[in-house]
């Protein structure tokens, strides 16, 4: 599903060049639930952003579901983000002036789905995440856990190939965090491919495979015993 080869990425902050990713090789099969671990500054979020086509990479090769992700036009990039990727952010990134249902329906708007159908599908996913009774609440009327569940519903609504979660529990307490992890596991059980970036071991341990990023390189690629065999 996801193939990364020798990915390099550096940022320039003023005068200095910061080399964040120094040749990352990574492979994620369809249906996997993978976590990317690492200390802050290890480049794990940058890696996830590159996978989610939210950021460019400098060199290397990246294929998403067979499509080479390189030198895309903005239009094509928008299309791939819309159809292939569901992104879950640490800060939820819900639009504050839209209620829960409208937030969930937004990706479908860019998919050019009609309004009625959009809202119907959004309600479906809200129901799946036990938020039916909150559909018309504005984000500021929801708790952190509820907000993240709305964001997850929004990531799922286009039925993307990959769900990418960047510290999805980073802004939540431990009870709510576990709640969100359970939700992600349930979604995985439905056959979704999920990559979670986290720095919490308790969460990483609940995924099938932990990729540990250290100083811009993958230092460990530990495979859980009961995982399906990975095709090389």
């Amino acid at each position: 599903m996801i193939e990364l080869k020798a990915i390099h990425k550096s940022y320039s902050t003023g005068q200095q060049q910061v080399h964040v990713l120094k040749g990352v090789d990574m492979f994620v099969a369809e249906g996997e639930l993978v976590s990317i671990m690492g200390s802050s500054g290890s480049g794990k979020s940058t890696l996830l952003n590159i996978i989610g086509i939210l950021d460019h990479y400098d060199s290397g090769h990246y294929r998403l579901a067979g499509t080479p992700i390189n030198g895309l036009t903005e239009r094509k990039a928008a299309y791939l983000r819309n159809r292939m990727i569901g992104f879950i952010f640490q800060a939820f990134n819900l639009l504050p002036f839209k209620n829960a249902m409208e937030n969930v329906a937004l990706p479908l708007y860019y998919m050019k789905v009609g309004r009625k159908e959009r809202n119907r599908r959004a309600m479906e996913y809200l129901e799946m995440l036990n938020l039916t009774d909150r559909w018309n609440h504005m984000p500021n009327e929801l708790s952190g856990g509820q907000k993240q569940r709305v964001a997850i519903a929004r990531a799922l609504v286009t039925q993307p190939k990959v769900i990418l979660a960047d510290e999805p529990t980073g802004a939540l307490d431990s009870v709510t965090s576990q709640e969100i992890v359970e939700v992600l596991k349930n979604i995985h059980d439905l056959g979704n491919t999920i990559i979670v970036v986290t720095h919490e071991h308790e969460i990483a341990e609940q995924t099938q495979r932990q990729i540990i990023l250290h100083d811009g390189l993958i230092s460990s690629n530990e495979v859980d015993a009961d995982i399906l065999p990975i095709r090389a």
Partner: peptide, 12 residues
């Protein structure tokens, strides 16, 4: 940025 992450095209 959020809209783009969700698939908004530059034209839209």
């Amino acid at each position: 940025g959020v809209r783009k992450a969700l698939g908004a095209t530059p034209v839209s």
